[in-house]
Design a protein around this nucleic acid. Structure first.
Length: 1170
RNA sequence: AGGCGGGUAGCUCAGUUGGGAGAGCGCCGCCCUUACAAGGCGGAGGUCGCGGGUUCAAGUCCCGCCCCGCCUACCA
C-alpha cells in the first residue's frame, strides 16, 4: 500500500528536471549514425526571456524527441542561443542611455565589455526557463553563436565564400537605420501604412544654353528633401506628354550651390530628362525625380543611365554639405524648409494627402533611410547557391552510390546459436537456438558481411538476403524453425513451435514471428549487449561480391506543406544578402585592408600552423585580446571558466569544441613567453627546429607582444581590420553543422548531420531556414534537416499578437507556476493543429491541469489498493475478464493512434487520443468496473470452501490490479512525451517499473495479440445499456445514490448474453437493486430502451410525466428527421444503383435501427400519455 | 493589387481518400457514492459564411461572392 499525496506539480517538476540534468540522461556521447535522431534547437535570442512562442517551439520539439527516444533512437538535441547583434546592442544601449551614456562615448572595447556583462544574465534566465519546461536537450553539447568555435566557423565560412567569389563588397543602396547607425537587410525592415503627402514640384526646362524656356516639368514626390540630391528627371519612353522633353535638361530648383558626387566630382544643377521603362505613366505626373543616392529604384535607374550619385543625407539623417542652405538640418526639418521655400518661389504646384507605407527599423522603429554605402554581400543569387537550395525543397536530389560488398556465404549442415545478453556486464537473458537454426546473417562495420544457410538451400539464402534488405537496423538476425529456448533471469521457457526471427539491433533483442512476408513483432526479449556464439557442422565458405546501390534522397520537407510554396516563391526572387552591419556586437568581419596596396586580406587560423598561433589569432579576431598583449593576459583568459560551459576552462573549450582534439596539455604565460621568444629570436635561424617566421614581436617599451599580420600581396604590416560585423543570421545559418564541430570533420558531424527535424515559426523561414539550407548545402553538400515543422503563432484570445505594449502576453513561467509545466505542455500540444494559429486564454491551462490531476488520482486509486506483495501474487492471478481485455484493447488502439498521429506531426490528434483514453476509458469506465473486484470482502467463517472462495476473491483482485497496473504503466509511457514530469513521478511509484527513467523505456506500440474484438464489442454494448438506464434515472429525477428496481426485455441473444454476464456491473454502475428479465412491461414502470432492449424502471411516488413526454417527443422528432433523410436516400433509385453496396447496406441498417427506435419511443409515449 | 490561411454549438476549435455533424470550456438539472468537487451522472444547444455546380450522396471536391487574419509587392 502506498499513499499518494495531493497532486502538486511544483514538487515533482523541480525534482525530476534536476534528476534528468544531473544524470545527463539525455546525453549520448557516441550516437549510432544508423539510428540517430538529431535536432538543433532554434537558438533563442539572448535579449529576452522566453515567451509563449518559445514554449510552444520547445514543447513541440520535446514531444517528438522524447517519443523518438522511447522508440529506440539515439536522440541528440542540441541547445544553444544566438547573440542577436542589433537587438542586443539596442538593449544594452538603452541601459546605457539611462545612465546618460552612449556607446560612442564608451568606445567599442568598453561597450563590448558591457554587453558581455549583460549577456550571461539573460542567457541564464533562458536556460532556467527551458529547464523548467522539461526539455530533454543535451546540455553538454550546448553552444552559442559567439563562442570560440562558432566564431572560428564563421570566419572559415566567410573566407571560403569570399575565395569562391560568393562574397563581394560593393557600393549599394541599403536600408539604413539612422538611430542604430547600421545597414539592415531587406528582411529587417517593417513597412507600415502612414499618412503622408505627395508634393508636386515644378522643375523649369532649360535650353542648350541653360536659359529657362518658360516650360516646366512637374514631378511628384513624398520626400521633397531628397530633391537636393536629384541628378535626373525620368519619364516613360512611351509617354506622349513628355516625348519632346527627353534629352533636354531641367534646372533643379533651390540648388544654386556646388554639389559633389560620391567620387568628389562636381555635379551640375542642370539635370537631364531621361526615358526609362520603369517609370509608371499613371502615377503622379508621370515624371519622376531621380535621386540615385537615396531611393532604391532611383539607384537602379541611376546605374543604368550612369547618373552621378549625390548624397544629401548623412548616416544620422542630417542634411549633408551637398544640401547647401539646408545642410545640418534634420531630414524632416529640411523637408518643411524646402516645401516652404518652393511655395515662396511658386514652384509648388500642389500638395496632396496620401497614405503610403514607410519602412521602419524592426528594432527601434526609426524610419529607414535608403542610402548608398559600401557593404558586404553574399551572392545568394548565384546559381551555385540558389539553384540547389531550390532543388532540395522543390523535388529533392537523389544520389545513389554503388558499393561493393564482400559477402561471406557459409553453407552449413547444422547450425546452433546461443545468444547471451548482458546488461552492463550482467547476464540478463540467454536465447538458445538449436540445430534447427536456418539462417544467420550479420554485419560488420554496418555492412552485411556474412550469411550462414543450410547446405544447398538456395531459398533460405534468398530469404536471408531479402530480410537483410528489408530490416534496416540490425547487428545480426537469425531465422529459426521450432521451439526456441529462452532463459530470462534464470527462468527457462520454451516458446511454442513456429518460425521465428531473432533480431539484434545493437540495443535490444527482438523476437518476431515470421509469417510469409510479414514480420509480426512478438516482444522485446531483452535489452543490452548481445553476443553471438555460433556452433556449426561442416562448413563451406565462399565469398560473393555484391554490388549494392544505395539511394539517398536529399530533400527538405515542409510541414504543413504549404510553407514549401512560401519558401520557393521567395527563393525564385532572391536578392543578394547584405551581411555587413555597422554595429559592434557580433562577428567582426575577418578582413584586413592593406593600407599600402589596398589588398583585401581575409585571415583565418588556417593561415597559421601551430596551436599557439591559432589560439592567439582567434583571440585577436574574437576581440578577446588586442593586437598587443602580454602572455599573462592570454593565460588569464584561457584559464577562466568558459562562458557557455563554466565547468570547463576557455582552453578546455578550445580543445573540445574548437579544435576537437587535445593538442597540448597546458598553455601558460611561461610557455607562451618561451614560444614567443624562440619565434622572435633573430638567432633562431641558428637554432635547429625553430622557425624564423617572425610572427611575434616584442615591444620593450610597452612590455607587450604583438602578433604580426602581413598583407598577403605586398607583405606590408600596415593593415587595418574591417570594423563592420556580420549579420547575426550569417552565423545562425551555420548552426546545424557548426554545433557539431564544423569546420573540423568531427565524429558528431559525421554521425549527426543532416539533422532530422527543425521546428520553427514561419516568420523566420527566410531569415533562418532558407539561409541554413543555402549554407548547409553549400558547405556540407547535404541538406541541414529533413523535416521542417512550421508551428503556429501564439495569439491572445482575441487573435491579436501577444506583445508587451498591448499587455496581453501570457508568460509561460507564470503558467508553470500556477498550473505546472505538464499542463502548459499538454495544452500547447492539444491546441496545435497544422495551419492554424493558437488563440490562447489562461483558462485553457486550467482544464488540462485537471487532466493531470485526474491521472494523479487514478494512480492514487491503483497504488492505494496495491498490496506490498503484489508482484509475488501475480503468478496466482485469475484469468482476465472481458473488461480487462476491453481496456487492453483500447490501450493498444490508443498506442496506435498516438504513434500514427505523431508520425504525421498531428499533435492535437495525438494528445486527444491519450486524453480520451485516460479520462473516458480508464478512469470513467475501467476503474469503475474494477471496484467490485478491488473492494470485494472475503466471506466470514472457516472451512475449505470458504478458504477456496477467499482465494478466488483474492486472485480475481490480483487480476484486476494486474490489469490496472499493466495498462497504467503503458499509458503513462504514451503520455510521457506530452507530460514528462507527472508520468516520471508516477511511473517510479509503480512496483512494475524497472529502470532509471520512464523516458528511456520503450514507447508502447499496438500489439495485434492484445486486440480482443469480441470482448470490446461486448463491453461497448454494456456501456450503452448502463448509459440508457442512467439517462432514464436522471429523467425521472431519481437521486444518484438511490437504489431502484429495474427489468428488461429483449429478443436479442447478444444483449441477453451481455446483460446476464455483466449484471453485477449493471447493478453497480446504474445503481440498481435488481435487473430481471421480463416478457412484458411490468406495472408501475417507466420504459426506455437501448437498441434492441427495452428497459423498465419501477417508479415509486411521483413521476413528472409531462417532462418525460417532452423529452421523448424531442427524441421522436429527431428520429423522424433522421428517418426522413434515410428514406429519401433509399428511395432514390440512383443511390441504390450507383452507391457501393456496403453504403447501401449500411443505410438500410440505419433505417432499421431508426425505425426500431421510433417504434419504441412511440410506444413509450403512448403509455405515458394514457 | 497578388498570394496564403480561416469562417462548423455561446466561446475555442477537431472533422486525412465525399457516405448517419464532434471535443473541451461555458450553460442547465441531480449528487460530497471509500482515486479525484480540480469530481461523478445526465441534459440542452448547429440553415457547417452566402450562392451556384459536380455527384446517387458535399462541412469535405470545383466556381463565384462576402467577411476576418496574415504575407508579398507597389506606393516618385
Amino acid at each position: 500500500m502506498q499513499e499518494l499525496k495531493e497532486y502538486n506539480p511544483k514538487d515533482i517538476e523541480e525534482k525530476w528536471s534536476k534528476f534528468w540534468i544531473e544524470k545527463a540522461l539525455y546525453h549520448i556521447e557516441k550516437p549510432d549514425k544508423r539510428r540517430k535522431f538529431s535536432v538543433v534547437i532554434p537558438p533563442p535570442n539572448v535579449t529576452g526571456s522566453l515567451h509563449m512562442g518559445h514554449a510552444l517551439n520547445a514543447t513541440l520539439q520535446d514531444i517528438i524527441v522524447r517519443w523518438q527516444r522511447m522508440k529506440g533512437r539515439d536522440c541528440v538535441w542540441v541547445p544553444g542561443f544566438d547573440h542577436a547583434g542589433i537587438a542586443t546592442q539596442y538593449v544594452v544601449e538603452k541601459q546605457l542611455a539611462k545612465e546618460g551614456k552612449s556607446r560612442l562615448e564608451l568606445g567599442r572595447e568598453e561597450f563590448l565589455k558591457k554587453v558581455w556583462e549583460w549577456v550571461p544574465k539573460s542567457r541564464n534566465a533562458i536556460r532556467t526557463q527551458l529547464t523548467k519546461l522539461g526539455v530533454s536537450v543535451d546540455w553538454k553539447r550546448e553552444r552559442f553563436t559567439l563562442d570560440e568555435g562558432f566564431s572560428r566557423a564563421v570566419r572559415k565560412a566567410f573566407r571560403t565564400l569570399y575565395e569562391e567569389g560568393l562574397i563581394y563588397r560593393a557600393e549599394y543602396i541599403v536600408n539604413w537605420c539612422p538611430k542604430d547607425l547600421t545597414a539592415l537587410s531587406d528582411l529587417e525592415v517593417e513597412y507600415e501604412e502612414e499618412p503622408g503627402a505627395l508634393w508636386y514640384i515644378k522643375y523649369p526646362i532649360v535650353d542648350e544654353n541653360g536659359h529657362d524656356t518658360g516650360e516646366f516639368i512637374t514631378v511628384a514626390t513624398t520626400r521633397p528633401e531628397t530633391m537636393l540630391g536629384d541628378t535626373a528627371v525620368a519619364v516613360n519612353p512611351n509617354d506622349e506628354r513628355y516625348k519632346h522633353l527627353v534629352g533636354k535638361k531641367a534646372r533643379l530648383p533651390l540648388v544654386n550651390w556646388k554639389r559633389k558626387d560620391l567620387k568628389g566630382n562636381e555635379v551640375d544643377n542642370l539635370i537631364p530628362i531621361i526615358a526609362d521603362e520603369r517609370v509608371k505613366m499613371d502615377f503622379g505626373t508621370g515624371a519622376v525625380k531621380i535621386t540615385p543616392a537615396h531611393d532604391p529604384l532611383d539607384f537602379e535607374i541611376g546605374k543604368t543611365h550612369n547618373l552621378p550619385f549625390v548624397k544629401v543625407i548623412d548616416k544620422t539623417a542630417k542634411m549633408t554639405e551637398n544640401a547647401g542652405d539646408f545642410a545640418g538640418m534634420d531630414r524632416y526639418e529640411a523637408r518643411e524648409a524646402i516645401v516652404a521655400r518652393l511655395r515662396e518661389l511658386e514652384l509648388l504646384e500642389k500638395e496632396e494627402e496620401i497614405t503610403h507605407s514607410v519602412g521602419h527599423c524592426y528594432r527601434c522603429k526609426t524610419v529607414i533611410e535608403p542610402m548608398v554605402s559600401v557593404q558586404w554581400f553574399v551572392k545568394v543569387s548565384d546559381p551555385k547557391i540558389r539553384d540547389i537550395s531550390i532543388k532540395v525543397v522543390e523535388e529533392g536530389i537523389k544520389e545513389s552510390h554503388e558499393k561493393e560488398l564482400f559477402l561471406q556465404l557459409a553453407e552449413v549442415e547444422e547450425l546452433t546459436l546461443t545468444i547471451p545478453v548482458t546488461d552492463k556486464g550482467r547476464h540478463v537473458a540467454v536465447i538458445v537456438l538449436d540445430k534447427n537454426t536456418k539462417i544467420l546473417a550479420g554485419k560488420r562495420e554496418g555492412e552485411l558481411a556474412y550469411i550462414y544457410y543450410p547446405k544447398g538451400d538456395e531459398k533460405s539464402l534468398e530469404l536471408a538476403k531479402k530480410l537483410a534488405n528489408k530490416i534496416k537496423n540490425f547487428e545480426f538476425f537469425a531465422v529459426y524453425e521450432g521451439s526456441p529456448k529462452v532463459i530470462v533471469f534464470g527462468n527457462e521457457e520454451l516458446l511454442p513451435p513456429d518460425t521465428y526471427l531473432v533480431l539484434y539491433d545493437g540495443k535490444e533483442v527482438k523476437l518476431y514471428k515470421l509469417q510469409g512476408k510479414e514480420l509480426r513483432p512478438v516482444e522485446t526479449l531483452a535489452k543490452g549487449e548481445a553476443d553471438l556464439e555460433v556452433a556449426q557442422k561442416s562448413i563451406k565458405v565462399r565469398v560473393e561480391r555484391v554490388k549494392q546501390v544505395e539511394e539517398e534522397e536529399k530533400k527538405v520537407r515542409f510541414i504543413p506543406e504549404h510553407w514549401k510554396k512560401f519558401y520557393l516563391e521567395w527563393m525564385y526572387n532572391l536578392k543578394d544578402w547584405c551581411i555587413s552591419r555597422q554595429i559592434w556586437w557580433g562577428h567582426r568581419i575577418p578582413v584586413w585592408y592593406c593600407k599600402d596596396c589596398g589588398n583585401i586580406n581575409v585571415f583565418t587560423d588556417d593561415d597559421f600552423d601551430r596551436a599557439y598561433d591559432k589560439i592567439i589569432f582567434n583571440l585577436i579576431a574574437d576581440g578577446k585580446i588586442k593586437n598587443e598583449f602580454t602572455p599573462e593576459e592570454i593565460e588569464q583568459i584561457l584559464k577562466s571558466p568558459h562562458f557557455v560551459h563554466p565547468e570547463m576552462t576557455v582552453l578546455d573549450f578550445y580543445k573540445k569544441f574548437v579544435f576537437h582534439r587535445y593538442f597540448s596539455t597546458d598553455i601558460t604565460a611561461d610557455s607562451l613567453r618561451l614560444f614567443f621568444t624562440q619565434e622572435a629570436n633573430p638567432m633562431a635561424m641558428l637554432t635547429p627546429g625553430v622557425s624564423t617566421r617572425g610572427l611575434y614581436r616584442y615591444d620593450s617599451q610597452k612590455k607587450k607582444w604583438k602578433m604580426v599580420l602581413r598583407c598577403k600581396r605586398c607583405r606590408s604590416e600596415n593593415l587595418e581590420q574591417e570594423t563592420d560585423v556580420l549579420d547575426t543570421w550569417f552565423s545562425s545559418a551555420l548552426w546545424p553543422f557548426g554545433v557539431f564541430g564544423w569546420p573540423e570533420n568531427t565524429e558528431d558531424l559525421k554521425n549527426l548531420y543532416p539533422t532530422d527535424l527543425l521546428v520553427t515559426g514561419f516568420d523566420i523561414i527566410f531569415f533562418w531556414v532558407a539561409r541554413m539550407i543555402m549554407m548547409g548545402t553549400h558547405f556540407m553538400k547535404d541538406i541541414p534537416f529533413h523535416d521542417v515543422y512550421v508551428h503556429a503563432l501564439v495569439r491572445d484570445k482575441f487573435g491579436r499578437k501577444m506583445s508587451k505594449t498591448l499587455g496581453n502576453v501570457i508568460d509561460p513561467l507564470d503558467i508553470i507556476e500556477k498550473y505546472g509545466a505538464d499542463a502548459l505542455r499538454f495544452t500547447l500540444a492539444i491546441l496545435t493543429v497544422q495551419g492554424r494559429d493558437i488563440k490562447l486564454a489562461e483558462e485553457k491551462f486550467e482544464g488540462y491541469k485537471h487532466f493531470a490531476n485526474k491521472i494523479w488520482n487514478a494512480s492514487r486509486y491503483v497504488l492505494m489498493n496495491t498490496p506490498e506483495d503484489f508482484l509475488a501474487r501475480l503468478p496466482y492471478m485469475a484469468p482476465l475478464k472481458p473488461e480487462d481485455k476491453w481496456i487492453i484493447t483500447r490501450l493498444n488502439e490508443t498506442a496506435e493512434a498516438v504513434n500514427k498521429a505523431l508520425s504525421e506531426y498531428q499533435y492535437s490528434q495525438a494528445a486527444h487520443a491519450i486524453y480520451e483514453f485516460f479520462w473516458s476509458d480508464y478512469c470513467d469506465w475501467y476503474i469503475e468496473f474494477t471496484k467490485e473486484r478491488i473492494y470485494k470482502k472475503p466471506p466470514e467463517g472457516e472451512g475449505e470452501e470458504v478458504e477456496q472462495l477467499k482465494m478466488q476473491i483474492e486472485n480475481e483482485r490480483t487480476t484486476a490490479l494486474y490489469t490496472l497496473h499493466y495498462v497504467l504503466e503503458k499509458a503513462l509511457r504514451i503520455l510521457h512525451p506530452f507530460m514528462p514530469y507527472i508520468t516520471e513521478e508516477l511511473w517510479h511509484k509503480l512496483p512494475s517499473a524497472e529502470g532509471e527513467s520512464i523516458s528511456l523505456k520503450e514507447f508502447s506500440e499496438k500489439n495485434e495479440e492484445e486486440i480482443f474484438t469480441e470482448d470490446k464489442e461486448k463491453v461497448e454494448r454494456l456501456k450503452e445499456i448502463i448509459t440508457a438506464i442512467r439517462s432514464l434515472r436522471a429523467d425521472l429525477q431519481i437521486k444518484p445514490n438511490q437504489k431502484i428496481k429495474a427489468a428488461y426485455k429483449t429478443e436479442s441473444e447478444l444483449s441477453k448474453k451481455v446483460i446476464e454476464e455483466f449484471k453485477h456491473h449493471i447493478l453497480n454502475l446504474a445503481k440498481l437493486e435488481s435487473f430481471e428479465e421480463v416478457s412484458e412491461r411490468p406495472k408501475d414502470t417507466v420504459a426506455t430502451f437501448s437498441r434492441d432492449t427495452e428497459i423498465y424502471i419501477y417508479t415509486e411516488g411521483q413521476v413528472d410525466v409531462e417532462k418525460l413526454i417532452q423529452s421523448y417527443e424531442k427524441k421522436r422528432e429527431k428520429l423522424l428527421k433522421e428517418l426522413d433523410r434515410v428514406n429519401k436516400k433509399l428511395s432514390n433509385e440512383n443511390f441504390l444503383k450507383k452507391a457501393p453496396v456496403e453504403v447501401v447496406e449500411k443505410e438500410k441498417q440505419i433505417k432499421e435501427e431508426l425505425e426500431n427506435d421510433l417504434k419504441k419511443v412511440e410506444e413509450i409515449l403512448k403509455v405515458l400519455k394514457s
